[in-house]
Amino acid sequence: MFLDTELLSATTTPFSYFPIVLQLVAAVGFVGVTMVATHFLGPKRKTSDKLVNFESGIEQIGNARQPVAIKYFLTAILFVLFDVEVIFFYPYAVNFKELGWDGFFAMLMFVAFFMGGFIYIIKKGALKWED
């Protein structure tokens, strides 16, 4: 097998993440306390007009939650696809020196496929916004 346990034998243990948990607790505490505090601190003089959505001063027309342009959605999907390809670069980059030229050429092929897909979507007009 081409893999060895090096990936697994790193020094980090679950305990290394403990401070992060601490920080999370601290941050959640901070956010929570602030939110609650401001909720009670501010004045409460609500009128129905005040609680209407702002649409540049005219009355609200329809519900805002309508389907948005498909382009945004397409971007999101493309991101998902390309992002997982990017993920593949990370282990490669970390082990890059040990893998040498062989690894480089393998990665070159990978980049070629990456670019293949990339050029394809661009040529297909998936990222054309001016229409």
């Binding site: 941050a27 956010v31 929570g32 939110m35 501010g42 409460k44 129905s48 209407v52 959505n53």
Partner: peptide, 25 residues
């Protein structure tokens, strides 16, 4: 801190509060 807190009636209350909290967190 001392401004009035306004949550529009049409909004999704829980998510409305969650949004900035997540951003800050």
């Amino acid at each position: 801190f001392f401004k009035e807190e306004i949550i529009p009636t049409n909004s999704h209350r829980f998510l409305f509060i969650l949004g900035p909290s997540v951003a800050m967190l």
